[in-house]
C-alpha cells in the first residue's frame, strides 16, 4: 500500500512503472445509447420513490472499467479503438473515457 496522505486518501496519480514500462491509468464509462431501452435503469427509477426519493429521472445503468495502458501520445487513440472494438458495443452503447494525469 502506498503511504496515505493526511486526509486518509491515497495520493491520486495515474502514472506508474510496470515492468519497466511507464503506464497511465484510464477510466472508461459505458452507458446504454440514448433511446435504447434500459430495463435495469427503469427498475431502479421506479424503486426510488418507494424510499421517498421523488423526481428522479433518466436512470441509466452502465459499466465502469479501469485500466492501465502504456503512456504516450497514442494512448488516447488506442483507448478509443479499444472501446470501439471490445470494451463497448457501439450498436447499443456509448462510451467516454478519461486519462488520469
Amino acid at each position: 500500500m502506498p503511504e496515505s496522505s493526511g486526509d486518509g486518501r491515497e495520493p491520486e496519480t495515474g502514472r506508474h512503472e510496470r515492468n519497466g514500462v511507464l503506464t497511465m491509468k484510464a477510466k472508461v464509462f459505458i452507458t446504454p445509447k440514448k433511446g435504447i431501452l434500459d430495463p435495469q435503469g427503469l427498475t431502479i427509477e421506479r424503486s426510488l420513490p418507494a424510499l421517498g426519493f421523488e423526481g428522479v429521472s433518466n436512470v441509466r445503468v452502465g459499466k465502469y472499467i479501469e485500466l492501465e495502458l502504456p503512456d504516450g501520445e497514442k494512448a488516447a487513440a488506442e483507448l478509443d479503438q479499444m472501446c470501439h472494438k471490445l470494451l463497448a458495443n457501439p450498436i447499443i452503447e456509448d462510451f467516454e473515457f478519461e486519462l488520469v494525469p
Partner: peptide, 10 residues
C-alpha cells in the same frame, strides 16, 4: 447485424 440487450423483464 444488430445486438442483444437484456430481456425487458430482467
Amino acid at each position: 447485424p444488430g445486438a442483444m440487450l437484456q430481456n425487458r423483464g430482467l
